[in-house]
């Protein structure tokens, strides 16, 4: 099928399948999945700038479907999502500026690659340690407790004491997040988490969901299911902003995004509904390979010089 905007010939079936796979990941983990969709679009010959911009457009659509489904399941904290969107957009701009500075210094690729590898490996290692420790302690505490819908959302984390210490920091203004079960937390802490996620998004590319979702759980103390749903809601706003800025630069082929999204829409629903059947620590454990895939792609790019 010929797509006139990007001038690419791509099989629509391929696009639907890629969208479907990325949709499942997005719905289940609350990530954009650009580390898979980007290389998948590159693989069929789409230029890098179109791959990035088009992927963002498709992420908007997929996140709308997944966030709607998560909202129906009670997994979206609108107040938190709106605050985080502000921090993410500011952070993304800062990350993009940082890239420009490094470009001028002439060593952007090496620095970005090393930072990305360290960040991805750290997240994976930390989440593997934390989720396994939490699952072990839960097993000891009540071996008879079965994972049902209600129980699955009652989230426990081995990192809980640190999270509670962060929540106790009294930096005005303090706000409450009743939907997420957080009585009081500094607004600045939420903005900081979103800002850091945004910086990494602007710096490393993509939505940086694999940084923001764990940060929401471990730093802000948001239950995993709500972190997934709220992150998706937040992605709608920040990815729409990214789509707009990329589109005015001529980096978006919306026709490709629309075709991809027909697959992503089913995948996102399957992923979102599946979260009901898993407890928070199990979702976090299943999340571990995602940043590793991101790290593997960066390592491949670093050693071969081919950008996937």
């Amino acid at each position: 099928m010929f797509f006139p905007i990007s001038g690419a010939h791509i099989s629509p079936i391929y696009l639907v399948i890629v969208g479907f796979l990325v949709g499942i990941l997005g719905g289940f983990f609350g990530v954009g999945g650009s580390f898979i969709a980007g290389p998948a679009l590159r693989l069929v010959g789409l230029d890098w700038n179109f791959a990035v911009g088009t992927d963002l457009a498709h992420i908007v659509g997929k996140s709308v479907v997944a966030a709607k489904r998560h909202r129906a399941l009670g997994n979206v904290d609108l107040r938190l999502g709106l605050i985080m969107a502000i921090g993410t957009i500011v952070g993304a701009e800062a990350g993009a500026q940082l890239i420009q500075m490094l470009k001028r210094a002439g060593n952007v690729n090496l620095i970005v690659s090393i930072v990305a590898i360290v960040v991805y490996l750290s997240i994976s290692a930390f989440m593997l340690w934390e989720s396994q420790k939490t699952l072990r302690s839960q097993k000891r505490r009540s071996s008879k407790e079965k994972v049902k819908t209600g129980i699955a959302k009652r989230d426990k984390s081995a990192f809980g004491p640190t999270t509670r210490a962060i929540q106790r920091l009294k930096i005005w203004p303090m706000i409450s997040l009743p939907t997420s079960g957080v009585k009081a937390i500094s607004l600045w802490m939420i903005l900081l988490v979103a800002f850091v996620g945004g910086v990494f998004g602007g710096f490393l590319g993509g939505g940086a969901g694999y940084i923001r979702m764990p940060s929401m759980v471990y730093v802000l103390g948001i239950p995993t299911h709500l972190a997934v749903g709220t992150d998706l809601f937040e992605i709608i706003i920040s990815a729409s902003y990214g789509t707009f800025t990329h589109a005015i630069k001529g980096n978006v082929d919306i026709l490709i995004a629309l075709v991809m999204h027909t697959g992503a829409a089913i995948g996102a629903q399957i992923g979102a509904i599946s979260t009901q059947y898993f407890a928070g620590p199990k979702i976090r454990l299943a999340f571990v390979p995602l940043p590793l895939i991101g790290a593997a792609i960066v390592i491949y790019t670093l050693f071969t010089g081919h950008k996937l």
Binding site: P4, V60, V65, K68, G250, V252, L258, T262
Partner: peptide, 28 residues
């Protein structure tokens, strides 16, 4: 859309977002 993308980038950007969100809402 191709014409919009070439001649009216800002309109194209707005239409692109509306299309993808519209498709998402309708499909869901």
């Amino acid at each position: 859309l191709y014409g919009l993308e070439v001649h009216h980038r800002y309109t194209y950007a707005g239409v692109a977002i509306l299309l993808i969100i519209g498709q998402a809402v309708v499909l869901e």
